[in-house]
Design a protein around this nucleic acid. Structure first.
Lengths: 193, 193
DNA sequence: CGCCATTATTTTACGAGTAAAACACGTGTT
DNA sequence: AACACGTGTTTTACTCGTAAAATAATGGCG
């Protein structure tokens, strides 16, 4: 968060900016209210970045909250679903290390999740025959079934949430985000090299 | 996360899609690689939502990581900075409850942060004279100075990170995000009412 | 007046994630 | 063969956040 305080940032109530006043295209989100507050206090600063970073953070928070519902119904946390999803979409076994990279989480977190998911019978592990350090994790039939059962619901739910935007805008937004993300990842990847 | 597994989602390495291959406009972000994997396994599903939600989540994660650096240098977590920022930009005292709403966090979290920030001499509290349940929190001079010192750096850093996008695209993106966020918040607000 | 519902805040118990240390194995070197 | 080194995974110790219970105080209302 913190697009220079992009994270949280409601404040609109104090701004006298009535949300949902007109029937028009949703005047004024919470981020613009926060930006106005900063402008009033520090008129000399360029608050441009907040308009993007703050909104991305806020959208992410709202969308995540919305998305949790379908998953919790299935008794899974998002992190757990991401792990199972990685196994499902790659279609083959993955080692704990690969799962960590695949889900952008630490090895320790993966270890814990695997323990739980194994106990629940959603994944199985098998040791590598050549290198006894590594393990290979795969979905059980139950695990695959669970993922395949949840996925359509999840996508339908997401579609519904995003339907607040007309399809054209959705495409545009996806394109711009792809461009931003691609370049951000490129820059990060470049730093690694 | 989990734009139906939007969160984590790298996988590109396994896809044969070389990141940073050409000098062009960063072909293929990690999300598109994940989407391709899902398409291969479940060709019948509409993976459209992932292209937006997945990217928003991933962008948020990358941007947050980047933004942490300037703050940590000042010895603040983002949550702490958001709290101080809320006090700074509103310009007046806030109660713990207001701070919780303002920073989208739980009251308990605010209580803890206030304790730490008070010990560090960045904020002060004073009890309400009329209603002894409520407290009023304000920035100390040190607190205000810290925020005002960090803010320009933070914005400059953000500007630099976002400069991977040309200004025109930045504006477009900000506009689309504002539209999405405004409507999402409207929808959420509507549910409360 | 005294009790009940309500509101503001804090405390408690706990779950989840992380970094760093600890393990457990391979591998190349001499 | 023995050792040092690198790598894959797990363990440990700790932080942070939350939900729910506890605390504290106000405001009717009979």
């Amino acid at each position: 968060m913190t697009a220079t305080n992009g994270g949280p940032m409601p404040a609109s109530d104090a701004t006298g900016d009535r949300p949902g006043a007109g029937p028009g295209p949703a005047r004024g989100d919470t981020v613009s209210a926060v930006v106005r507050q900063w402008q009033a206090v520090h008129p000399e600063l360029d608050t441009g970045p907040m308009e993007i970073i703050g909104r991305i953070n806020r959208c992410a928070a709202l969308l995540q909250q919305a998305e949790d519902a379908p998953l919790r119904r299935a008794g899974l946390s998002r992190a757990e679903f991401d792990l199972l999803g990685a196994l499902r979409r790659t279609g083959h076994e993955l080692t704990p290390g690969e799962l960590a990279r695949e889900t952008f989480s630490s090895g320790a977190a993966v270890t814990k999740r695997l323990k739980q998911l194994t106990e629940r019978g959603l994944v199985e592990r098998r040791g590598d025959t050549r290198d006894r350090r590594v393990a290979h994790v795969r979905l059980t039939d139950a695990g695959r079934g669970l993922v395949d059962g949840i996925l359509p619901d999840q996508l339908a739910y997401e579609t519904a949430v995003l339907s607040v935007l007309p399809p054209g805008d959705q495409g545009e937004l996806a394109g711009l985000l792809a461009e931003l993300l691609g370049r951000l990842e490129g820059r990060m990847g470049a730093l690694r090299a």
